[in-house]
Amino acid sequence: MADKRTTEDEVVAELADGMTVGIGGWGSRRKPMSLVRAILRSDVKDLTIVSYGGPDVGLLCAAGRVRKVIYGFVSLDSIPLEPHFRAARQSGAVDAMELDEGMFQWGLYAAALRLPFLPTRAGIGSDVMRINPELATVTSPYDGEELVAVPALSLDVALVHMNRADAGGNGQFLGPDPYFDDLFCMAARRRFLSCERLVPTDDLLKEGPVQSLRINRMMTDGVVEAPHGAHFTSCDPDYERDEDFQRLYATAAGDPEAWATFERTYLQLPSEAEYQAAVRAS
């Protein structure tokens, strides 16, 4: 079994301007934030971000790294609207492809299965079809029903965060919801997994049942041990969302001076370790 251990900065070194990057998790839950922060430390730009969006989208938009966002929603969960994403949309700074959130899953699944599209009723009759003129419908060859052909959302890179993993890139979720992280990995050419804790392969089943091994090593190219790597999003059961910090993040968004302070204190740091130290000191 290949040893796929790597670091956030090495992962980001594989990114190039203009790439399409899928980010796992859901809203402000189990986001690979240490990898997102590593992107912020790099000079990668013009990314297309594909995400059940949360602060991953907000941070990358605020830093001007995003050309386009593909999403069904962008939310901080306990704070319904993501302020940085809103600002980016309202100023026209980013292009958007806005889908129904079930269509979004279908697009990832189509890419995972190497299909050009998957059919669904979701989207039919709504303005999803108007605002995304590239979307087409197909007619069922069996009964003539017209269905939306959700195009494959193929990714250059997928970034996901798991509770546990081994050095070979097998990943384990221990919270109640796997989200769509396996689909993100399967939809991507290069797949990177961060985790709260690396454990020996033989210990994975001591951590959780076999059903929690949602990601297997065929689906990953690199694994990063990142304790608290999902901060400030939740990483159930290892930790809950840091609501105080999220509030600080969201509030600072409304005030350029407060945002500059937030960036200086937490984002313009040379390493993830220093971010974690700054959070502990706050």
């Binding site: 969006g53 929603f73 309202q90 806005e98 129904d100 959130e101 669904t120 979701a122 989207g123 709504s126």
Partner: peptide, 25 residues
């Protein structure tokens, strides 16, 4: 989803979420 023109909204709201799929299913 948003208030105003979708291309350049006055106020970006949640996004479509599951509303398109919910209502036809």
């Amino acid at each position: 989803a948003c208030i105003g023109d979708w291309e350049r909204p006055k106020a970006q709201l949640l996004g479509m979420r599951g509303a398109p799929g919910n209502t036809v299913n």
